[in-house]
């Protein structure tokens, strides 16, 4: 589904991704871990198409298409979803209105007919159950004044509505207490299918107790330096990152 080869990206003059390789197949859950500043969020932003990052080399293939050639909205329409680490507050636009617009723009891109109000309502009701989100939250201005937990739950609700092929969760666990974390993770698990894939970017192992990954990768200095199973995450939790640096021949 996703094939990242030798990806290099910079912001300003600062190189952040320095030849990153990753392959994700349908039905898989990949966790990307790594110390601060390794390039985890940069990877998420580059995949979603954020213009502040300049891709200087490598390629990203998504379902046979050159992802880097597409505008952010085209990537979303192709089925890429980024759950933001810091969801943006948008005063004056309700979540409902925002998502109606998004769904119909995506349907237009795919050559499908627009959904009418009744269809929307029915679909919304179904998706609301998945993430246990309240109607009153959806009527409010998008993310405005939402608590950390509400924002993250809203991200997963948006993911449920847009039903992406590839979901990238960027530090979705940050700022969540354990109950909120469980609700968010349950939502993600319910949305899992053999046809879609998930990349979980996280700093801590605890999210992976709830969203169990098939593969765990360590991102360090802009490259994936180690891959393994979920046991790798446990080992990182226990031992930190220094042993990886040592393996790489760095003096700690």
């Amino acid at each position: 589904m996703l094939k990242i080869s030798n990806l290099q990206a910079k912001i300003g003059d600062k190189e952040i991704l320095k030849g990153l390789n990753l392959e994700v197949k349908a039905g898989e859950v990949h966790a990307i871990m790594g110390p601060n500043g390794a390039g985890k969020s940069t990877l998420a932003s580059v995949l979603a198409g954020r213009e502040t990052y300049e891709v200087t080399g490598g390629s990203v293939e998504f379902d046979g298409k050159d992802l880097l050639e597409l505008a952010p909205e085209e990537r979303a329409a192709e089925g890429v979803f980024l759950a933001f680490q810091y969801p943006v507050e948008i005063p004056g636009v309700s979540t409902t209105n925002f998502l109606k617009t998004a769904v119909n723009e995506i349907r237009k891109y795919r050559g499908e007919e627009a959904m009418d109000a009744v269809q929307f309502l029915k679909m919304f009701k179904e998706k609301m159950k998945i993430v246990n989100i309240d109607q009153s939250l959806l009527n409010r201005a998008l993310n405005e004044g939402f608590s950390g937990g509400e924002k993250k739950r809203n991200e997963i609700f948006q993911m449920a509505v847009l039903n992406p092929k590839l979901a990238i969760l960027d530090e979705t666990d940050s700022g969540l207490d354990i109950d909120a974390l469980r609700i968010v993770a349950e939502g993600v698990n319910k949305l899992k299918s053999p046809d879609n894939a998930t990349i979980v970017i996280t700093h801590y192992q605890r999210l992976l107790d709830f969203i169990v990954p098939d593969f765990v990768h360590v991102l360090y200095k802009g490259r994936i330096v180690k891959s393994g199973t979920k046991d790798l995450a446990l080992e990182l939790e226990e031992r930190g990152y220094d042993w990886i640096k040592e393996e790489l021949g760095e003096t700690v």
């Binding site: 505008a71 933001f84 948006q158």
Partner: peptide
């Protein structure tokens, strides 16, 4: 940031 957030949900830049 708001523009990118909306685009990342499939909404064109103009919309």
């Amino acid at each position: 940031d708001a523009l990118f957030y909306m685009q990342a949900r499939g909404i064109s830049k103009d919309t």
